[in-house]
Simulated scan of single mutants.
Amino acid sequence: MTPPGPARPARRSIPAAVLGTRDERLKETQPPRAARIAVYVLLFPLGFAVSVCGAFVQALWPPVGVLLALAATAATFYGGLRVTGTRLGAAVPAGGWFLALLLVMVPRPEGDNVLWTNATSLAWLFAGSILGVICATLPTRAGWFPGVAGPPR
């Protein structure tokens, strides 16, 4: 009779395997303050660029383009949250995203529009806004402002 081998680890769901569990995320160490500030400075133009690119991609390939633009938007917001460990890390690219939207929604003097009032444009605007709010309110390792400790856990 052979001795039993090591116990197999419990199977994890796909989101838990990719993103980690809530407890694992909250136990991660936070980057130094100077590094977080540098990341915030880079996240704003990244959110701006994702918004401008998403405005064109969602119109270029109507059903698939919206999903592609939303995936890039969600990755930017959630990536900022995970890299900095603060909610501000998700809010900064969301601010750049909204600023770019304000600029691309204004019609040009020639009458050209980047975003039209069709289903794909409105779905991208609405779902992207919801993604920004969701990512900015997820539990984090710190409070809203950089360097401010969160509630005790």
Rank of each mutant, 00 (worst) to 15 (best):
R108W: 10
L99R: 05
G85R: 00
W97Y: 15
D112E: 13
V106Q: 12
A72I: 04
P109N: 08
G85A: 10
L88M: 14
A91H: 02
D112S: 13
F98Q: 07
V106W: 02
M105G: 09
L122A: 12
E110G: 15
G79N: 07
L101F: 08
V92W: 02
F98G: 10
D112C: 00
L99S: 13
V114D: 00
T117Y: 11
P109D: 09
A100R: 01
E110S: 15
L115P: 00
L81G: 06
L103G: 09
R108K: 10
T86N: 13
T117C: 05
V114L: 08
L115E: 00
W116D: 12
V92T: 13
P93Q: 12
A72K: 04
L99V: 14
L102G: 15
L102D: 08
A74V: 09
G79Y: 04
T73K: 03
L99I: 14
L99Q: 06
A100E: 02
W116M: 10
P109L: 05
A94V: 04
A119D: 09
N118I: 11
G80I: 02
T117G: 10
T86M: 06
W97M: 09
W97I: 03
D112Y: 03
F98D: 01
L99A: 15
G85W: 01
T73M: 06
L70Y: 09
F98A: 15
G96W: 02
G85F: 05
A90G: 11
T73R: 03
F77M: 11
L102M: 15
G89A: 09
G79W: 05
W97P: 00
G80H: 06
L70M: 12
T84H: 04
L103H: 05
T86C: 11
G95T: 08
N113P: 00
G79K: 05
T73H: 03
T86S: 13
R82Q: 13
G95N: 05
E110N: 14
L102S: 14
T76P: 06
N118G: 15
W116H: 14
L115F: 07
L115K: 00
A90F: 03
S121Q: 02
R87K: 13
M105Q: 09
V92P: 04
L103A: 14
W97Q: 07
T76Q: 06
L122F: 10
G111W: 01
G80A: 09
A119N: 08
E110L: 02
A91S: 11
L88R: 05
G96A: 10
L122S: 12
D112N: 10
V104H: 00
L88Y: 02
W116N: 10
T73E: 07
R108E: 12
T76I: 07
A91K: 01
N118A: 14
A119L: 14
G89K: 03
L102P: 02
L115N: 04
P93R: 07
G111Q: 07
G111E: 04
G95D: 04
L103V: 11
V106F: 06
R82H: 10
M105C: 14
W116G: 12
G85E: 02
L115W: 00
L122D: 10
P107W: 02
L81W: 09
L99D: 08
V106S: 08
T73A: 15
T76A: 15
G89F: 04
L122G: 11
A75I: 10
G95Y: 00
Y78W: 14
G89P: 08
A119G: 15
